[in-house]
Simulated assay, not measured.
Amino acid sequence: MPGSRKLGRPTDHRQAMLRGLVTYLLENGKIETTVTRAKEVRAMADRMITLGKENTLHSRRQALAYVTKEDVVKKLFDEIAPKYEDKNGGYTRIIKTGPRRGDAAEMCIIELV
């Protein structure tokens, strides 16, 4: 169930972290993070791309309320969302890369398809 993982953080810290990760993913196209974080980011990134496909003033304001950079929202509505116009979900891919050296956390790369 998306949005139910606490990730060992207080609510405000967790929400800020996910907003930053989603913004960075939309800005760069791919990021490297842990698997549990990537699963949470996937749900929110898919939600933002779905908002971008609607392309109304209301959806643009909803995206601006979540994504932390205005130029990323512009890129979302002008470049990213039109690529997925004929696709119903599944905009991201998670590729596992193995354990992290320091604490053996399962790492992965999440990218836009």
Rank of each mutant, 00 (worst) to 15 (best):
G90M: 10
E32D: 08
E40H: 04
L76K: 10
G89V: 09
D46R: 13
K39P: 01
V35R: 06
T33N: 00
L76T: 01
Y24F: 10
K39Q: 05
G8L: 14
R93K: 14
N88D: 15
N55I: 05
R9F: 05
A16L: 09
H58E: 14
G52Y: 07
E54V: 13
V67F: 03
K83Q: 14
I80G: 11
D46G: 14
G29M: 07
I94D: 00
L64Q: 11
K53I: 07
D71E: 11
L21P: 00
L21K: 12
A81K: 11
I94N: 03
G90R: 11
Y24G: 11
F77V: 00
L64M: 13
V67P: 00
K87R: 15
D46A: 13
L57W: 08
A38R: 02
E32I: 04
Y66G: 07
P10K: 14
P82Q: 11
S59N: 04
E79M: 12
I94Y: 03
A38M: 01
T56P: 04
T36L: 08
V67G: 02
Y84E: 12
A63V: 00
M17S: 06
L57N: 10
T68K: 15
I80K: 12
L64W: 02
G90Q: 10
Y24K: 11
N88P: 02
M48R: 03
V41E: 00
E27V: 05
R37L: 01
I95N: 08
L21H: 08
R9E: 06
R42G: 00
I49D: 07
E79L: 14
T97S: 02
E85P: 03
K75E: 13
T34Y: 02
R42A: 15
T92L: 02
L51N: 12
R37M: 01
R93F: 10
A65P: 00
R19N: 04
H58Q: 13
L26M: 09
V73S: 11
T97Y: 01
N88R: 15
R19E: 07
G89M: 12
E27I: 03
I49G: 09
T92P: 02
P82D: 12
V67M: 05
N28P: 02
L21N: 02
A38P: 04
I94K: 05
K75P: 01
R37C: 03
Q15V: 08
L18C: 05
R19S: 09
I31T: 07
A16N: 10
R14Q: 06
V72P: 00
L64C: 06
T36R: 06
K75W: 04
Q15E: 15
R60F: 13
E79N: 15
P10H: 14
R101S: 14
V73N: 07
K39I: 01
H58M: 09
R100D: 03
G90P: 05
M48T: 05
Y91I: 07
I49H: 11
V35F: 00
I31Y: 03
N88F: 15
D12V: 12
Y66M: 07
E32F: 01
S59F: 07
G52F: 06
L18A: 09
R60H: 11
R42M: 14
L25M: 07
M48G: 09
K53N: 02
D78P: 00
G90T: 09
K69R: 15
Q15C: 05
R19Q: 15
R101Y: 09
G90W: 12
A43P: 02
V35H: 03
A65M: 07
D78W: 06
L26D: 08
V35L: 11
N55K: 13
E32W: 03
E54F: 13
K53P: 01
R60E: 12
I94T: 04
R14L: 05
